[in-house]
Amino acid sequence: MNPTASLDQQPLLDIANLTVTFPSEHGPVRAVRGVNLRLRGGESLAILGESGSGKSVTGKAALGLIGSRVRLTGSIRFEGDEIVGADENRLRALRGRGIAMVFQDSLDSLNPVYTVGSQLEEILRVRMGRSRSDARREAIALLEQVGITSPETRLHHYPHQFSGGMRQRVCIAMAIALRPRVLIADEPTTALDVTVQAGILRLLKRLQRETGMALIFVTHDLNVARLVADRVAVMYAGRVVETGPIDEVYRRPAHPYSRALMHSHPSAATSWSELHPIPGNGPSKSVVVAGCSFHPRCPVATERCASEDPPMLAVEPGRSSACHYAEEVLRGER
């Protein structure tokens, strides 16, 4: 990461050298391996990666939502306070108010036996100490804010009475109810119809502008990421392999994996011959690859890549890449 980029301002969220290790029957599995990320207030960061790249785990770790049998090392600082190893009481105070989260599956992330209104009001009453009528009024305002029409009536409906897109809006309303400084959206549009995705993305963007909160957008979809994020961190096999302003990374990727990701997206191609799926399978978490973890699938890999793990180095101001040949890849020479 570029050392001059954020020295003038303390980052809101500072993830340094984070590793997450899960126990498994084959021994420890490292889902996240030395991730460094910084998020400033009001900034919007996309974490991009395939399934199993550790992107969701990184998001959950920031909320301390990782089980007790999982080992976390490194540091996650929110406004300077350490989250790794913090006790449940401190984490609870942070959750919702400091950092909130929106999940992929909007049906499952609402309690099916309570009306949407009572779930929203509960958050406001328990966490903000609002009175019943204040909570009701605020819940209506929140539903209105996330674009739900006739919120006074919708308040009395159960989650299953909403469509997928509306439900995700309700989830967003719940997540922003406590005015968090950071909102982590974990693939919030993946389970939705394409037709409503755009609405949700626009809503997130608008809310971010209105409330000044920072946004971490976890996704596997590059085009979706471009709509909401200023910066992107591309993850592969539990590591960040490239960071930078999203448009620049998109136009001139500095890591072969980022480039492959862009070429494999169906919307980037106009015919089958232009579509290039990344060869090979995604990384296996239990098998540790020597050297660069992408080298078995990398079109430009050399012998050096099989033995030497490339460090994350700056390639341009504000951009860094973990590839031995980052500069050549950036210039399109490899």
Partner: peptide, 20 residues
């Protein structure tokens, strides 16, 4: 269920999650 995780993510107490 994800809604239990969601409840934790918004900062609910464990006792509240189980009872409520």
């Amino acid at each position: 269920g994800v809604f239990v995780e969601a409840a934790r993510a918004i900062g609910s107490r464990r006792s509240r999650i189980i009872l409520h």
